[in-house]
């Protein structure tokens, strides 16, 4: 009797497992989409005008601040981070090769190709779209903030002062504008000196490498984001070693490549948990038998 029930439990678990793993394989590293989009940030060209901040702010209706507040250059001393009311910020850095001339660098979500936030999210509220943007669905979100823990670039911000329905806030790569309306991201559209180039990521990588080749001495020979954490949709060219900027040295290791194999290994078609169940069931039966025998001989 109990064995039959165990089988039933097993079948129930197995059928739900197929559903879980079916979903899991679907959300694994998406097949490389050659048309996936990106933006190349050329920090050697960026003038630090902060118009991108203003455009982002206006497009996402973050604050009512007028353009003039974005012309203040004293904020460069603060090394600000993106926040709930500023999805992108421009900071300043000094290249040791040329300490006289400060450079500016725009910071926002990198839209990783293998985003840790998406892999971490308990309910799939974060999604890597085939077009490139990593987008967020507040309706699903439970507010655990594991995405913020997981992000290798420390990007997602949280509405901690919101009591009822706080949201995770970050750059959406202007998903609506870019994917639905075919426009440029707000920041890229307004950039006056083409420090931001929007296009297919594959092409942007070629452009970046040819800029490095064609302008000797202008760039450090590394396209940041080409291989970092498995590649990012946003790419950076820097006039100096990127370690002199505030781009973090995140390496090429992909966070989800550590955790997902563990998860999928432990749950491979639910065999390991069921095997453990069976083994313990057997032990329970076996040891009980031995005890009964011992009692009989007593």
């Amino acid at each position: 009797m109990s064995l039959k029930r165990r089988d039933f439990l097993g079948i129930a678990a197995l059928s739900s497992a197929t559903l879980v793993t079916g979903k899991a394989t679907a959300s694994e590293a998406p097949a490389h989409n050659p048309d996936a989009l990106g933006v190349l940030v050329d920090t050697a060209v960026c003038s630090g005008c902060r118009k991108c901040e203003w455009a982002c702010n206006r497009t996402h209706e973050l604050t009512d601040r007028p353009m003039s507040t974005f012309e203040d250059k004293t904020v460069f001393e603060l090394h600000r981070r993106p926040d709930r009311d500023a999805f992108t910020v421009v900071n300043q850095f000094i290249a040791p090769e040329n300490p006289e001339k400060p450079y500016a660098i725009k910071v926002q979500c990198m839209h990783c190709l293998r985003p840790a936030c998406v892999s971490a999210c308990i309910v799939g509220a974060l999604e890597k779209t085939p077009e490139g943007p990593v987008i967020y669905d507040a309706w699903k979100c439970i507010g655990c903030r594991y995405c913020i823990v997981a992000c290798p670039f420390q990007i997602p911000a949280y509405e901690y002062d919101e009591a009822l329905a706080p949201e995770v806030k970050k750059c959406s790569f202007c998903y609506e504008r870019v994917v639905k309306e075919g426009k440029l991201p707000a920041c890229t559209e307004i950039c006056p000196n083409e420090a931001l180039t929007f296009g297919r990521r594959d092409e942007l990588i070629d452009i970046a490498h040819s800029r490095i080749k064609n302008h000797p001495g202008m760039y450090y020979d590394h396209v940041y984001g080409e291989h970092e954490v498995g590649g990012t949709s946003w790419l950076y060219l820097t006039p100096t070693d990127f370690k002199n900027t505030e781009l973090p040295d995140v390496g090429t290791e992909v966070g989800p490549d550590i955790t997902e194999p563990i998860q999928h290994g432990v749950f491979k078609a639910f065999v390991p948990p069921l095997a453990l169940y069976g083994l313990l069931g057997l032990a329970m039966h076996q040891f009980k038998g031995e005890k009964d025998k011992a009692e009989e001989t007593e």
Partner: peptide, 26 residues
Amino acid sequence: ADLGRWYNVWHPMLPNMWQGNSALFE
């Protein structure tokens, strides 16, 4: 207390939100 949207705590039970890649889901 720690969940920003604590009233959604049951969401992981909904099959359309299952996320087998997430250790937290498990």
